[in-house]
């Protein structure tokens, strides 16, 4: 089964590598999600330690055990989890930005609206993510490890951005 395009909203838009996903891929988001829930109560600054928890369990439980191949398939599922989280957080911040623009009612010192500033930021983030992960993959050109490095990079940066939107933008 090939997973080729994953079209999402403007928040992420990414071309995933073509991944041969194992039939039995036992991905369960519970480990990552419970880690996130726990960190939300105790250590909001370091939620990034949770990223990849479920993917690691999944790779260990895959037929043949942990391998570059199983981890790549499992990490792509973990990417989906954080991509969804980013889209949710981005939508929330879009709503807050719209409220702020409504309150400003044309009196802002800035010609550009908060909503447009947000879109510009997120587009710049997408370009940064793509350039960064392209660089990381390039270090391993031609190898299957490059695909794992790539999906791991996308997942890490996507999670970081979701946390940033969740913690600090417009929430102060």
């Amino acid at each position: 089964m090939m997973r080729i395009w994953m079209m999402t909203s403007v928040a992420t838009m990414v071309l995933l590598p073509q991944l041969a996903v194992a039939q039995d891929m036992p991905y369960d988001p519970a480990a990552t999600q419970s880690c996130l829930a726990e960190m939300a109560d105790t250590d909001m600054e370091n939620t990034n330690v949770c990223v990849g928890r479920s993917a690691e369990q999944c790779a260990d439980a895959s037929t043949g055990g942990f391998s570059t191949r199983s981890m790549t398939a499992c990490m792509s599922a973990e990417y989906g989890l954080f991509d969804e989280m980013l889209n949710v957080e981005y939508a929330k911040v879009r709503g807050l930005a719209a409220d702020l623009d409504k309150q400003a009612n044309g009196t802002s010192f800035d010609d550009v609206s908060m909503g447009d500033r947000l879109v510009q930021m997120q587009r710049a983030w997408i370009a940064y993510r793509d350039a960064t992960c392209a660089f990381e993959r390039r270090q391993f050109d031609g190898g299957t490890i490059g695909e794992l490095v790539y999906i791991d990079c996308l997942t890490t940066l996507t999670a970081d951005q979701a946390f940033r939107l969740q913690n600090s933008v417009l929430g102060l």
Binding site: D110, Q120, A124, W125, A131, V169, L170
Partner: peptide, 22 residues
């Protein structure tokens, strides 16, 4: 390329926060 993209991201991100507290 990655570093240049980061600079653009930093600028856009900080410009947004500046606007937020206009």
């Amino acid at each position: 390329d990655a570093q240049r993209a980061w600079i653009a991201f930093r600028d856009a991100d900080c410009a947004m926060r500046y606007h937020q507290w206009s």
